[in-house]
Amino acid sequence: MIYNIKEQNFESPDDFYEVLVNAHDGLSDDESRRLNAKIILLLANAIGNKDLLEEIILTARKSFVEQ
C-alpha cells in the first residue's frame, strides 16, 4: 500500500466535489452512468498501482457484501 486510502488527500475537496457533481448536469441517467464509468477508468489509469486499485475497489464494495 502506498498510503492509507481513508486518510484525506484532497488538495481542495469542495472544488473536486463540485466539478464531479456538475459534470452530470443535463445528462440522462444512462449518460450519467457512462460518464461515471469513464471517470473511473481515467482515475484508475492515473493511479496505476495494482494493489492500491484493488484496495480501493474492495473497500468500496465492503458495505454491500457485509450486510
Partner: peptide, 20 residues
C-alpha cells in the same frame, strides 16, 4: 457492459484505454 462501453469511448482518443 457499461464499463466496456466506456473503454471503447475512451480508446478513440486515449491509448491507455486500448490496453483494456
Amino acid at each position: 457492459e457499461e464499463f466496456r462501453d466506456a473503454v471503447f469511448l475512451l480508446s478513440e482518443e486515449m491509448p491507455f484505454a486500448r490496453q483494456l
